[in-house]
């Protein structure tokens, strides 16, 4: 009966553990998904396209560029894109289109031309020139707003409203192919890095590397100093715990526990005492087996010889 109860208890506990694990995995995956989707940004928008980028059908239309600002691939199927805050689920990006998987730091262009039958990247609404256009991107639940922007009414034909730096929340600007503006960059980077800017900056600011040497050595020293101090404290706590445990044990047994061996207890003396006891008590094990040496005949063949076997490894 007791055995059965214990078994039932173990099974219940196992089930509970599995359930907890599943919940943890589910919560973890949700968090991961949410983290990934949060990295999606509206990056550039063109409302009135007269002489700019052409779609696969050879036509020009308003477009919205989204950007995966993370360094991990991102699946954007089932997110919602809308121009109406009161109707967040206006257009859902369909499942199963390969273009909806964005590589790290990559762009995708959606055409706001109202032709939703032309594929996953054609939205079922149009942007209106001359008025403020609000654009929002919602997560698959249709509630969580991932990103939004209001494109100003002042935007003229072939001008785009874009982030200065891709995915950066710092600032937006009007772009145009005309002189005095930064260029329009559909499905491309708004800011193109030329070479390794960090390294170039170091080359300019820290020509001899002295600054880098000082800062880096400080970081290395602080990291190891922190670790060192931390372990100094841990070892002190350990020592105190050990001594308090020892004191408790002594109080419990009422005996003095000596950790040091008396100086006269040498190894030789202990060995001599043990041998004397052995002789005196005539104590030894009884063996049930006999050790003999018999000649064993085996048919010899060089093919079975370990000496000539190729599996032998040479040793120096």
């Amino acid at each position: 009966m007791i055995g059965l109860t214990t078994k039932t208890f173990n099974i219940t506990r196992m089930k509970r553990n599995i359930l907890l694990l599943l919940v943890a995995i589910a919560v973890g995956s949700l968090t991961l998904s949410a983290q990934g989707r949060r990295s999606l940004r509206i990056n550039e928008v063109m409302v009135q396209n007269e002489n700019d980028y052409v779609d696969d059908y050879g036509q020009r239309g308003a477009w919205i560029e989204l950007f995966n600002s993370s360094f991990a691939p991102l699946q954007i199927s089932s997110i919602f894109i809308t121009d109406d805050p009161n109707e967040p689920t206006k257009y859902q990006v369909p499942l199963g289109d390969v273009r909806t998987k964005l590589h790290k730091r990559s762009h995708i262009l959606f055409w706001a031309d109202g032709y939703k039958t032309r594929g996953a990247t054609h939205l079922n609404f149009k942007l209106v020139p001359g008025v403020d256009n609000w654009i929002g991107v919602y997560d698959a639940d249709g509630i969580t707003l991932i990103d939004s922007v209001t494109v100003p009414a002042s935007l003229t034909a072939d001008q785009s409203y874009a982030r200065r730096f891709d995915g950066d929340s710092d600032g937006w600007e009007i772009r145009s192919s005309e002189e005095g503006f930064n260029p329009v960059t559909p499905a491309g980077f708004n800011h193109v890095k030329e070479g390794n800017s960090k390294a170039a900056m170091f080359a300019e600011q820290d020509e001899h590397g002295f600054g880098m040497a000082v800062i880096a050595m400080c970081v290395v020293f602080s990291a190891l100093l922190l670790l060192s101090v931390c372990f100094y404290i841990i070892s002190k706590i350990g020592e105190r715990t050990a001594s308090s445990n020892k004191a408790k044990a002594q109080a419990h047994t009422g005996e003095m526990v000596s950790t040091e061996r008396p100086s006269h207890d040498s190894g030789e003396e202990i060995a001599a005492i043990v041998m004397a006891l052995h002789d005196h008590l005539d104590a030894h094990d009884t063996e049930s087996t006999i050790l003999t040496i018999n000649k064993v005949k085996r048919a010899y063949s060089p093919w079975s010889s370990k000496l000539y076997n190729m599996r032998q490894l040479p040793h120096k």
Binding site: E207, G209, A213, A216, V220, S228, S235
Partner: peptide
């Protein structure tokens, strides 16, 4: 762990990296 202050020697030796960095520049 027994002698945490020895960690600092490991930190000091990393100056080889940054000394060479300066010469490489």
């Amino acid at each position: 762990i027994a002698n945490p202050k020895l960690m600092l020697i490991g930190a000091a030796a990393q100056f080889g990296i940054f000394g060479a960095y300066m010469v490489a520049l």
